[in-house]
Simulated assay, not measured.
Amino acid sequence: MMNGRLQGRRALVTGSTSNIGRAIAEAFAAEGAHVVVSGRSADRGKDVVEGIRARGGRADFVQADLDGTAEASRALARDAVAVLGGGIDVLVNNAGIYPGDATADTDEQTFDRVYAVNVKAPFFLTAVIAPAMAEAGGGAIINLGSWIARLGVPVGALYSSTKGAMETLTRASAAEFGPRGVRVNAISPGVILEPSPGEPSPGEVMMNGTPAGTLGDPRAIAHAAVYLAAEESAFVHGITLDVDGGRTTTAVIAA
């Protein structure tokens, strides 16, 4: 059922063929937005688009491999604008990769690739889309951070550093583009996994001792993204919204 909180908006969600990105694209479409679903897999992209259309939403797929080059980001922006028949009102920088290697096991090629995909690609996508939003009268950009950007864990140092960079870029971009009508905010998800009934996840232990006490569903992040894209958050600039079951802020002490 469409509630229309994003009625008439045109949105681009990167990395939206699965998990969090897919949930955001589906939620945006359910609220009336015309959504460009983007990712590397045409098959998965087609599946997301068909699902959205079957529920009465508007969506199109644009294939893209955001490798960190400025041209790849610019090409996606051009293709998305063409499909949407005009500008982009909402950009969600969600695409990212996660190698879980220890620091000593991370080679230079992996380091460069993770920063290219997780930081350079959204930086250059923002660089081309934010000024166009400002020229058109405004818009909203939502970046994806991560709880491990601020709570150190002994694995994934490379990934967590990229998410720390994205949260810093969120604040800097809010300062740069906010006065021109473009709101820039971030969401910091906790341990989020698509539901797999009957299959335990090793990530569950990472939510022990939190108020939620369990893994998060991608839809929790999608709800937050709808809020940051909609008019309800018109006075919200430069924040990182923790949607992590209390992982970074609260410790539940058992009696």
Rank of each mutant, 00 (worst) to 15 (best):
G178R: 00
N94P: 09
L91V: 06
G32L: 03
L66R: 06
G145K: 08
D217G: 09
A140S: 15
I52W: 07
G57Y: 09
V243L: 09
G213Q: 10
P211N: 05
G137S: 10
P99E: 12
V182Y: 00
N118D: 08
G181N: 00
P179V: 00
V114W: 09
L193I: 14
I129L: 14
H223R: 15
D244S: 03
A234Y: 04
T210Y: 14
E26Y: 07
A82G: 14
G138R: 08
M2Y: 06
N208R: 12
A29Y: 00
G51K: 01
A121L: 08
E26W: 09
G86N: 10
V83N: 06
P197T: 12
R53T: 10
R9F: 13
I141K: 02
F28T: 05
E231S: 07
A212G: 10
Y159W: 00
T103H: 06
G138T: 11
E50Q: 07
T110M: 13
L228H: 12
T162P: 00
L215W: 07
F235M: 09
R58V: 06
R219W: 14
T14Q: 11
G137M: 02
H34W: 14
G238E: 00
R40P: 07
A149D: 05
S41M: 02
T250I: 05
A220F: 14
L125C: 01
A70N: 13
R247L: 14
A255V: 14
L215A: 07
A174N: 00
I253A: 10
E199I: 11
T170C: 10
L193F: 15
D244P: 08
E167H: 11
A134N: 12
E71P: 10
Y227E: 03
Q63E: 15
G15K: 08
T170I: 08
V92F: 09
P197H: 03
E204M: 03
G85D: 09
E194L: 04
V62W: 11
M206C: 07
A140W: 09
V90D: 08
H237R: 11
S173E: 13
G15H: 11
L6K: 13
A225L: 05
F177N: 00
A229I: 03
F61S: 08
G152Y: 11
R10V: 04
T17P: 07
G216I: 10
Y227R: 04
A121W: 09
V114D: 13
E26F: 05
M1Q: 15
A25T: 03
N93M: 01
P179Y: 00
P179M: 04
P122I: 14
L158Q: 05
T214V: 13
S38W: 01
A64F: 05
R180K: 01
R219Y: 14
L151V: 15
R44C: 06
D60R: 06
A172S: 14
A157Y: 06
A149N: 13
A186Q: 00
R183N: 01
G198S: 08
A11C: 10
A165K: 06
I192S: 04
I88C: 11
G198A: 02
Y98S: 09
S173R: 13
A64H: 04
E135Q: 05
S160N: 10
G156F: 11
G51I: 01
G138E: 14
L125R: 01
